[in-house]
Nucleic acid binder design. Structure first.
Lengths: 317, 317
DNA sequence: CCCGCTGATGAGTAATTGCCCATGAGCAAA
DNA sequence: TTTGCTCATGGGCAATTACTCATCAGCGGG
C-alpha cells in the first residue's frame, strides 16, 4: 500500500484526522484506533492540520458589542463597510482575528458570480489574511496588485501578497513588476510607461474592491523594517507630518497624501477611487492608531476591518 | 465587562469566549481572567458556543468532500465503516483508488495485536486491493476464503484472492477447496460435509472482519465472464429480479438472497454475520450502482469502500 | 562504509479541558 | 415567609490533549 504519495499522503491523513477531530468530534484516541496509528501520531496529525491551515474556524455570530461599534464607525466616518472582531487583550499580534475576518470578506467578493476586479496592496496583515483563504476557482475575476513585488535588494518582496493569493485562488493575476520605491520621479514615469505596467495600472484603476493594509511610520514600521527607507529618511518624513502609509503612499494626520520627494518615488498604482469603488483597510493595534485614524478621516479608505480596541479608539476622537 | 444584557448577553459572551478560544487560540484560563469569570464558566461558554453552532469549522482539503459523503452514507444506511476515495472521471477502471484504500484498511486490521480472523471473498477489485498489500508478518491472525478456488474448467480460479494474499501476508491461510458453483444442492451438501471444508466453514463463521467485492449481474458481469453461468441462465436470473452477487450469493434489488436453484448451488461459505462482525464491500462504478445499492440497503454488507461518484448516487436515492 | 542530519515514533508527563456535584441565589406560588 | 423550583457557580476529579525527550529509520555527503 503506502508506497507512493508519502508527503501528500501525510497531509491527506492530517486532513482526515482534523476532520474527525473538529467536524466529527471524535477524540484523538478514537481517531488513532480508526486510522491504525498511535494516539500521539493522531495528535500530531491534528495539530499538523491546524498548522497547515487545513482547518478553518470561524465565528458565526454577530457579537452585539462589535456590531454596535461597527455601526457607529460606519456612521461617524461615512464608511461603506466596517467589520469589528473581538480584541484579544493578551496578544500583541497585529493579525490575529482580523486576518480571518478579512479572508471571509475577500472570499465573499470572490464568490460573486459577476466578474470583478479585486485589487490588493501589501503588508503583513494582508498577507496573513490571504493565507487564510481556501482554494477557490473564479476564472471570471481578475486580481491585481497595487504595489510592486521587488524589494530594495532586488528579490521578490515577501509581503507582496498577490503571489500567496495566486496559490489559493484560481483567477487571472496581475502582479506589478516594479519596486515599491524607485529612485526618482523620472524613473517612475519611465517604468510606468512600459506596456506591461501600463495595462496593469489600467486594470487597477477599474478595481471594484480593494484590500489594503495600513502601515504606521516609525523606525519599527514596515517601510523601515523592510528596508525601503533609511532611518533618517523616516525621521524626516515624520517631522514633516507623515503618520501612515498605504501601498507606500504616505499621508499626514488628516489623511492627505504628502507632497514630498518620497511620494514622488512611490511606484505603486494609485489607490482606486473611493467614491466609486470599495477600498477596505485592514489594520489594528495601538501602534497603528494614528495611521488608521488618518486613513479613514482622510478617506484614503472607505472600509475598515479592525478590532474592538481600535474601534473604541477611533470613536473616542 | 458584559454583566448586564442577560439573555442575549449570554450568547454574546459565548461567541466572545468561543472566538478567543478557537480563533485567538487562548486557553480557557486566559479567557476566564480576561472576561472576569471563573475557568469553569469560560468552559461553559466555549461549549455553549459550539452547541449553539456559533463556531463553524471547515476543512479546506480535497478529501473534505469524501469525508462528508462517508459520514452521510454511514448515517443513512447505518454502516459501520465507510471510506470514500475521490473519483477519477477520466478512468473507467473499477479498481483505481478503492484498491489502495481497501489495502490500507486490510493492513490496518492485520496490524492489530490481538488475533483476528479475516475473511475474503473474490473478485477483480478485491484482487487488486490485495495486490497493493505490503509484506506483513502476522502469525496471530487467520485468513480464510469464503469462496472456492476452482473454476468451472477445473483450474484454480484466477480471482480467488487468498493465494495472492498469502504471497504478501505471513499468516495461516484457509482456502476453500471447492468450486464456486456446484451442480446441485445435494453435491454441495456432500462437499460441505468433508472434514477439511467443514473446518474452513467453521473458521469463516467466526470472521472478525470480511472483505468482499460486489459483483453486478449481466452478460458482462463476472459470473458470466468467468464462465460460472451461461448467458441464458444469467438472463433468467435477471428476469427473476437478481441485481448483484457477493461471493456468488445472488440477491435482488432489496438485497435479499434469492430463493432459486442457482443460490442452492453456491458452494461459498455464508457471508459472515453483519450484526456481530464487520463485512466491508469494495466496489464502485456505474455498472455496479444497482448491485451496491441492493447490498447496503439489504445489509448484505455493513461497510463500504467506494468512490465519490458512487457515494453520490447512493445518497441520491 | 560511516557520519550527521532530518523527521517520525512512542513513552512519559505536564497542561488543559470536560463533567459531576453540592451550593446558593433568584423567583414564583402557596 | 416558606417552599419548591431553576439555574449559574466553582470545587474537585477524571479524561483528554500538548509537549518533551530519547530513540530509530532513512538518506545524502564525506
Amino acid at each position: 500500500m503506502a508506497k507512493k504519495a508519502e508527503t501528500s499522503g501525510r497531509l491527506d491523513d492530517a486532513a482526515r484526522a482534523g476532520w474527525l477531530y473538529y467536524v466529527a468530534g471524535r477524540t484523538q484516541d478514537e481517531i488513532a484506533s480508526a486510522m491504525g496509528i498511535s494516539r500521539q501520531s493522531a495528535q500530531r496529525l491534528v495539530s499538523l492540520a491546524v498548522a497547515e491551515r487545513l482547518i478553518k474556524v470561524r465565528l458565526d455570530h454577530p457579537i452585539a458589542a462589535c456590531l454596535e461599534l461597527a455601526n457607529q464607525l460606519r456612521k461617524k466616518f461615512g464608511l461603506r463597510h466596517v467589520e469589528i472582531v473581538p480584541s484579544d487583550p493578551g496578544s500583541s499580534s497585529t493579525t490575529v482575528g482580523i486576518a480571518e475576518a478579512a479572508a471571509s470578506e475577500i472570499e465573499r467578493w470572490l464568490k460573486r458570480p459577476d466578474p470583478i476586479v479585486l485589487a490588493v496592496g501589501t503588508g503583513r496583515t494582508l498577507k496573513a489574511a490571504v493565507d487564510q483563504l481556501p482554494a477557490i476557482e473564479c476564472p471570471n475575476h481578475r486580481i491585481v496588485s497595487l504595489t510592486g513585488n521587488i524589494a530594495p535588494d532586488g528579490s521578490a518582496a515577501y509581503y507582496n501578497v498577490i503571489f500567496s493569493m495566486a496559490d489559493a485562488v484560481k483567477a487571472r493575476h496581475y502582479p506589478m513588476p516594479l519596486p515599491v520605491l524607485v529612485t526618482s520621479a523620472e524613473e517612475r514615469e519611465l517604468l510606468h510607461g512600459q506596456q506591461l505596467v501600463r495595462s496593469t495600472l489600467a486594470i487597477s484603476a477599474q478595481a471594484d474592491v480593494t484590500f489594503v493594509g495600513i502601515g504606521e511610520l516609525g523606525i519599527d514600521g514596515p517601510l523601515c523594517v523592510d528596508g525601503f527607507l533609511e532611518k533618517d529618511e523616516m525621521m524626516e518624513l515624520m517631522s514633516g507630518g507623515a503618520v501612515g502609509e498605504i501601498c507606500g503612499w504616505i499621508f499626514d494626520a488628516d489623511g492627505r497624501l504628502l507632497d514630498n520627494p518620497i511620494n514622488e518615488r512611490v511606484a505603486s498604482a494609485p489607490i482606486p477611487p473611493r467614491d466609486s469603488s470599495t477600498v477596505i483597510g485592514i489594520a489594528k493595534g495601538k501602534r497603528k492608531f494614528k495611521a488608521i485614524r488618518a486613513a479613514i478621516t482622510g478617506h484614503q479608505v472607505n472600509g475598515l476591518i479592525t478590532d474592538e480596541e481600535t474601534a473604541e479608539f477611533l470613536l473616542s476622537i
